[in-house]
Design a binder for these strands. Structure first.
Lengths: 139, 139
DNA sequence: ATTTTAAATGCAACATTGTTTCATTTAAAA
DNA sequence: TTTTAAATGAAACAATGTTGCATTTAAAAT
C-alpha cells in the first residue's frame, strides 16, 4: 500500500515528513531504529517532528514501537495497516539477535495467555525473545 | 540475608555504596527505579557509582534489571541471592500497572516456551504483562 | 482559484538517562 | 602497617526524548 494511501485511510494529513517516515519503514523488511530511519529519510528528517509523528502514527495504528532494551526502540509498520479500524490489532512477539542486533516480528507465533493471579487484570502482554537469528545462528 | 553477607557470598567488595544499594532494594517489596532507590540511599547515592554498581551486581547475579518501557528501568533482588552460583537462575515474568506504575515479579508463573521458527536460536525470553494491579484493579 | 484555519513543523532550550576518563580513596590481602 | 587492585566521584560528554512558541502548510470553505 502506498504511503499516501495509508495516511488517507487513517485520516492523517499527508505531510512530507510522514510520507518519508512511512517510506523509510517500507524500504526495510526489519523493524528499524530512529537512526536507521534517519539515514533513509535524509533531509526529510527532523528529530522533533520524527518523535511527534511516530507517536501520531502509533496512535492511529499505522506503526508499532518495539522496545528492544532500555536504549533501543525500533519501529515497524503494522501488518494490516490497510484496515482503518482493526478491532483486534494482531499482537505478535519479537525476536532480537544478540549478534547482529536485527529485530524480527514473529507474526506467526501467537502470544500465550498466562495464568497470572486473579487479582491482576492483564491488558497487554509483550514478549521479546533474544538469541541468534537465522543469519547469525551458530549450529 | 544481610547485605554484607550477600556481597561476601558473591566475592564483591563491601563498600558503603553497594551496601546502601542492596539495603534500598531490601526495603521495598516492589522492584524500584533509580529515583526511588536514590531517595532511600540518601547521601550514599552517587549517580555514576550507582550505574557501575547495578552493573556489577547484575553480573554477579545479585539483582536483575527490569525494562518496564524505554524510559523506565527497575531493579530487584534475585530471589535466590543466597546461592552463589545458581545454575538455572530462576527466570520469571513481570507485571506493570498502568495506573500506579508499580512493577511486580510474578515468581510463580513460568515463562512458556514458544514454537518459533527453527532457524532462530532462542536464549532468553522476556515477558512483560501490563494492566491493572491488585491495588488498582477496577472490577 | 483564493481565502481560511487548524494541524503540523522546526527552532531553541531543556530534561533525563547513561558513559568515559582520570585522579583519589578504600577494602582487603600481604 | 604497608601494599595494591578495585571502587569511587568529579568533570565532561553523548544519546534520547520533551515543551513552548512562532511559522508553515494541507485541506476545507468560500
Amino acid at each position: 500500500m502506498k504511503a499516501t494511501d495509508i495516511l488517507q485511510t487513517h485520516d492523517l494529513k499527508k505531510t512530507n515528513s510522514r510520507l518519508a517516515l512511512i517510506k523509510a519503514l517500507q524500504e526495510s523488511i526489519f523493524p528499524q531504529s530512529e537512526n536507521e530511519m534517519k539515514s533513509r529519510m535524509s533531509d526529510q528528517y527532523d528529530r522533533i517532528t520524527f518523535y511527534r509523528n511516530v507517536q501520531a502514527l502509533e496512535d492511529a495504528g499505522v506503526i508499532h514501537r518495539i522496545v528492544v532494551d532500555s536504549h533501543t526502540v525500533k519501529y515497524a509498520l503494522n501488518c494490516c495497516e490497510t484496515e482503518k479500524k482493526h478491532q483486534h490489532l494482531h499482537k505478535h512477539m519479537h525476536f532480537n539477535c544478540k549478534s547482529c542486533g536485527k529485530t524480527f516480528c514473529l507474526e506467526n507465533v501467537d502470544v500465550k495467555q498466562y495464568p497470572i493471579p486473579a487479582e491482576f487484570q492483564a491488558e497487554e502482554c509483550e514478549v521479546m525473545i533474544k538469541g541468534y537469528c537465522k543469519f547469525c545462528n551458530q549450529k
